[in-house]
């Protein structure tokens, strides 16, 4: 008993010696590489390790780099379409698979929708490479649709999760009350369910957008020639001599991700 006291701190069952130290070190380790990456994006020199003064020149260079411009627009375009379609499909599926007695096939629907989460990305990527190669040969079409379709598919489970969570926490008696007050099923959906579900739908969209924006593996396998997205462009670049331009692009992408994730959290917590 006295052994606990003489440490100079009041006894607490919540304190385990050493844990706080490891935790703080972990946080430091987690953020140090990102911090360094961001700092050197402002480096005036060519190096990613030797500081030569503050400058925005790498941002300017990235901004004026046509390949970067093109990849950025493609990334944003694919993410917008894929996240929108995925959110729509996920919303419908979430409405169908919540708040009902389990029916035959419901578990199957649920498992299928979450399937992209359970299979390693590289396996899905290979599968899509093979499948789309067949279609490309058969149709001769090699456009962007393959990439959009692949992104939509793996975005669906991410969009589905927050929407489903919100539907499940929604009070069933609200929809009953609307029906009781002469609202047809469609009006009940439009005036009560949809407005209450909206933050969940937006959260789902944000998540899907970020996931699409960040994807490397599937994009790398599915893209046709000249269909670089920002991440695959960067993957190609880092094989060569690294300049702080990569850091600048990374920093911009990080910032976009943080903004979307923060919005996602704000929306998920909204009542």
């Amino acid at each position: 008993m006295s052994g606990w006291r003489n440490r100079g701190q009041p006894f607490s069952s919540r304190r385990i010696p050493g844990f706080a130290g490891i935790a703080l070190a972990t946080f430091a380790l987690l953020y140090a590489p990102i911090a360094i990456l961001v700092i050197y994006s402002f480096n005036a020199g060519l190096s990613i390790a030797i500081w030569e003064g503050f400058s925005l020149k790498w941002y300017v260079q990235a901004w004026n780099n046509e390949a970067v411009q093109e990849a950025t627009l493609r990334s944003l375009g694919v993410a917008s379409v894929a996240a929108t379609v995925a959110t729509l499909a996920a919303t419908m599926a979430a409405l169908a698979t919540t708040r009902t007695r389990p029916f035959r096939g419901m578990t199957a629907i649920y498992t299928l929708i979450n399937q992209p989460l359970m299979v390693p990305e590289i396996v899905t990527a290979v599968a899509l490479l093979i499948f789309f190669a067949i279609i490309k040969v058969a149709t001769g079409y090699t456009g962007i649709v393959y990439l959009v379709a692949a992104h939509t598919a793996f975005c669906i489970p991410f969009a589905y999760l927050p929407i489903r969570a919100r539907l499940e926490s929604m009070d069933l008696s609200l929809e009953r009350a609307a029906a009781d007050l002469y609202a047809t099923p469609w009006m009940t959906f439009r005036r009560v369910t949809l407005p209450l579900l909206w933050p969940g739908i937006m959260a789902g969209f944000m998540l899907a957008f970020v996931i699409s924006l960040d994807d490397v593996v599937i994009t790398e396998f599915v893209k046709s020639a000249g269909q670089e997205t920002l991440p695959t462009y960067m993957l190609g670049q880092i094989r060569r001599v690294m300049t702080p331009e990569v850091n600048a692009i990374s920093t911009a992408l990080l910032l976009a991700g943080v903004v979307f994730v923060t919005l996602f959290f704000a929306l998920s917590r909204k009542r």
């Binding site: 419908m92 599926a93 698979t97 299928l112 929708i113 399937q115 992209p116 599968a127 692949a150 598919a153």
Partner: peptide, 13 residues
């Protein structure tokens, strides 16, 4: 309602 999601995931995953 589940059909679009099922179709997309089946076709592209």
């Amino acid at each position: 309602l589940s059909l679009p999601a099922i179709a997309i995931v089946t076709a592209a995953a």
